[in-house]
Simulated scan of single mutants.
Amino acid sequence: MKNILSSVGIGAAEVDTILPKTTFRPGETVEAEVEVHGGSTGQDVDDVYFALITSYRTEDGRKSSVIDKFRLTESFTIEPDEERTFDVEFTIPYSTPTTMGHTDVWVETGLDIDWALDPEDKDYIEVEPSPRLQAVFDAVESLGFTFHTAECQADPHGAFTSRRSFIQEFEFKPRSGPFAGDFDELELVPRESEGELTVHVEIDKRGGLLAEMADMDERRATLTVADADSRSVEADLRRTIEQHR
């Protein structure tokens, strides 16, 4: 009877991830622990997986996307009431979205057990902008733009990336400064690696309803950021926007 109950999750093994904190940056190395607690009967665990996940908007709703995933250990048997702890070390990938606006990122840990409801643990984390991306945000603010929203969206045709199915877009509104009244909004799509940050910039210029319907009000450019120097980024971004004024 205990085996039958365990197969539907009653009295089954449990898994819990212990993170050292809840806020991280891309490129940061994290040391955590995964605890497996035995249930009321012994169970064979085929796999312990650890994944970093986000979600993005599509035309049909929202989908989840695995940013990174790896296996923690070989198969083993967890005996009744036994406790096992596994040390985990992983790096937050540079492709991890920043948790601003409508963006969520979470760590999911699970046990793969045949003929049973797989136990899992889900921990939401905060992901701050990388130093280079923060320099871009500081530059945008210095030019008089205010953060409006951020969201992960599907990129089905690979317009911005060929390695994943979504992008993260940040929208800013001009409130003051040299470009106030000239544009509707400034949209940024970052792609970061260990060596540099590429920012796709879309400038929506005020052009009236006819121009907007024909997408004639949109101007696009690309900005490369090698260092977290907000003054240098501000100068480059200013030139980029002025070219499309």
Score class of each variant (00 low, 15 high):
Ser6Glu: 11
Ser6Ile: 04
Val8Met: 11
Gly11Asp: 11
Ile18Arg: 13
Thr22Lys: 15
Thr23Pro: 00
Phe24Ala: 00
Thr29Gln: 10
Glu31Asp: 09
Ala32Asp: 15
His37Glu: 14
Gly39Leu: 14
Gln43Pro: 05
Asp47Asn: 12
Val48Met: 09
Phe50His: 10
Thr58Gln: 13
Asp60Trp: 04
Gly61Lys: 13
Arg62Val: 05
Lys69Glu: 15
Phe70Thr: 12
Phe70Lys: 07
Glu79Asp: 14
Glu82Thr: 12
Asp87Met: 12
Glu89Met: 10
Thr98Leu: 03
Val107Glu: 03
Val107Trp: 08
Glu120Leu: 14
Asp121Cys: 05
Lys122Ile: 15
Glu126Ile: 10
Val127Cys: 07
Pro131Ser: 12
Asp138Pro: 08
Gly144Met: 09
Gly144Pro: 05
Thr149Gln: 09
Asp155Tyr: 04
His157Asn: 00
Gly158Cys: 05
Ser165Tyr: 02
Glu169Leu: 08
Glu169Lys: 07
Glu169Phe: 01
Phe170Asp: 00
Gly177Ser: 07
Ala180Ile: 06
Phe183Ala: 13
Glu187Met: 07
Leu188Arg: 04
Pro190Arg: 03
Ser193Thr: 12
Gly195Tyr: 13
Glu196Arg: 06
Leu197Phe: 03
Thr198Met: 06
Val199Gly: 01
His200Asp: 12
Gly208Phe: 10
Glu218Gly: 02
Arg219Ser: 06
Thr224Gly: 06
Ala235Glu: 15
Leu237Arg: 09
Arg238Trp: 06
Ile241Asp: 06
